[in-house]
Amino acid sequence: MVDLWHVTFEVFRQKDNQKSHFNFFELDINPDEYVLDGIERIWAFTDRTLVFSHACHHSTCGACGMLVNGVEKLTCITSIRDVTRDGGKIRIEPLRNFPIISDLSVDMSSLYSRMEAVGHQPILPIQEEDSKGKVKSEGDLLRLADCIECGLCISACPIALTTSNYIGPAVLAGAQQHGELTPCILELVNSENGAWRCHSAYECTEVCPSNVDPAWRIMELRRKIIANRFSSFFTRK
């Protein structure tokens, strides 16, 4: 038998735009389970009204992002052992910089529609480059993109905190991944709420759970926008 840990989950609650508060749930839990498992246990055994988002439980869907002790985490792959100790607590809050639907669940519609607008490709050739260089492989194989649209980078971004108009790291990284700067995409990213708004805090890359490295991609995107300005200057009629 595994030794269970006694852990207090401090869970952010808010229904229907009423005043928010925290509920405390005491769990005896295997520390190798994940934070999301703890939350699901609370729902399954203690409080059926708890609202939280999740789907794949293995970091491919991006639904279960939350603040764990104040830091953006994909809760399905964050083990309890890594964020607390026996007798300790775990504070769970919804992601920042998104409207709250209820309790721990946030509305990420803006992220999804902006990703659509910049043409981020959900599926792409395996060799596609990232900040570490090209992934090696032969032929015409395809893979699902790195970005899982979890919103962690937007929650962690100090600029997104100041204005919801900033299109945010995931979206700028999505534009870079798309490759081509079409006039529509250029208008979105080459604007005061686009690539130039970023202050290079690199918080996005710090919290990204899925190899996207948004900060690197935003810098790449800026280079691309400048190159585009030069070439359009010289081809102007």
Binding site: A44, V135, L144, D146, N211
Partner: peptide, 26 residues
């Protein structure tokens, strides 16, 4: 099963009573 930059190994097959939470064993 490969997906994104990961692989998943599966699966086992057993029966359970409470479906709302079934723990994973070591």
């Amino acid at each position: 099963v490969p997906q994104r930059q990961m692989i998943t190994v599966g699966t086992t097959s057993f029966e359970a009573d409470n479906l709302d939470y079934i723990p994973v064993t070591e």
